[in-house]
Nucleic acid binder design. Structure first.
Lengths: 236, 236
DNA sequence: CGTATTACGCAACCGGGGTTTCGTAATTAG
DNA sequence: CTAATTACGAAACCCCGGTTGCGTAATACG
């Protein structure tokens, strides 16, 4: 039952993961270089790749460790507990988003540029461009981490599976919370809990990943309010 | 006003984009190799990079061209038009998802493996693993395309801006549809249209990108029904 | 006409994620 | 103790996205 050959060094996982965490948080996903992680952890690159077959695997392990141990409170008032839970998810997303250079983000020239230009779809406008041009806006390096993790899940099925297990673990709590609220009579008895949850969590991820807008407490409350009240006109 | 130097060859964009489209659809994002695109289009790699500074830029251009020209119908019945629109988005996502190898996906050993194993979080289970092992499950290569595009938007701000413009163009139609429904009295006058739309669209993307479950007409209708009716108990 | 400007093609190059090879260390089975 | 098995480390290597350098072609301007 005991494994046969030479045992793995026990302290490697910890060393590598903390080095990787530091790099990921400070320099973002692109800055998470296996070579440097190995060097900082005092470990050969081969050893690193023996345990995490891909940079993507390593990054997922880092993130999983970061957000382990989330809880959820059930006060009996769904209108309070739900925004609280959403905000907790959002906090995780924003913590990732905060990963970037330590410098202040002075936001020169008005941020997201509300798209006043002509809708010219052609790619090359100005003569010649090189890739390093406009990249890395000195912030927002970690909304990228979430995005890269999504891509990683699509690239490697096993990363996807692990990632889904991670989410499922968290979301099971929320599903239970919702079901209790249903049984308690706070929510409709015939509610489609899965659809509701997808809408709430989905809106958060949509905001962060697609529209790039911030998610905060106020937004979480708007979501919950809209979802609970419904869009249809109330029948008097 | 006319540009100064040698003009760009006019047929290059078309040739490159169609070659890239073919590659992306047949072999997925990872199979979209700049070298091969250039070769197939009969163009030097430098020319390619002069117009699209990154593979990510090129891929976005391909996708943008693929899904140009979406329409939206306003029948006056929001409970019909909304699922139709969502299904249109979903169709785009699924079209991407369908991009993969032509072979049949025989789904050996029961699909998504409902996670009965112990929640062992440690990465390296079996001794040694190499990256090429479990990758590329012969299908689902293009859910990856959407995911990679999300990551691309995070990597290059200009790609993100273009991508958001692409979405915004589509979503403006839906927002208008919703606002008309409000004015028509079909929806609550104080409805938070943005929140509602984020919930609907977000749920679709959440399903495809995070949970990996399919999105079809039935799901779209579940969403709309849940969102319109609301989760709270109706006040009689 | 000549000159400035910009695009194209070719080939060599660079950097980073990942692999291979091989010698060595640590353990279990007999 | 010996053999089998597995992990570690070091260096060379491969692949691919992207760059550089340079000679040449096509246009505008004077």
């Amino acid at each position: 039952m005991t494994p046969r050959g030479r045992p793995r060094r026990a302290d490697v996982d910890e060393g590598v993961l903390s080095a990787a965490t530091e790099l990921l948080l400070q320099r973002g996903y692109a800055g998470l270089s296996p070579d440097e992680v190995a060097e900082r952890a005092g470990v050969a690159k081969t050893t690193l790749y023996r345990r995490w077959p891909t940079k993507d695997h390593l990054a997922l392990a880092v993130v999983a460790r970061l957000q382990a141990g989330d809880e959820i409170t059930d006060s009996g008032d769904i209108r309070r507990d739900l925004p609280a839970y959403l905000e907790k998810i959002a906090a995780g997303l924003n913590r990732m988003r905060a990963a970037g250079r330590g410098g202040a983000a002075s936001d020169p020239a008005g941020g997201a540029a509300p798209a006043g230009d002509q809708p010219d779809d052609r790619p090359g406008d100005q003569p010649d461009r090189k890739a390093g041009d406009q990249d890395e806006p000195d912030d927002d390096r970690g909304a990228g981490t979430v995005a890269e993790l999504v891509a990683a899940a699509a690239r490697h099925p096993d990363v996807g599976a692990l990632e889904r297990r991670m989410y499922a673990e968290r979301n099971a709590l929320a599903h239970a919370l919702l079901h209790r609220a249903v049984e308690r009579g706070e929510l409709r008895p015939d509610l489609d809990v899965e659809a509701l949850f997808d809408q709430l969590a989905g809106a958060l991820y949509y905001r962060v990943l697609i529209t790039g807008l911030p998610v905060d407490r106020a937004y979480a409350e708007r979501l919950v309010d809209t979802a609970l009240r419904g869009a249809a006109v109330p029948k008097e």
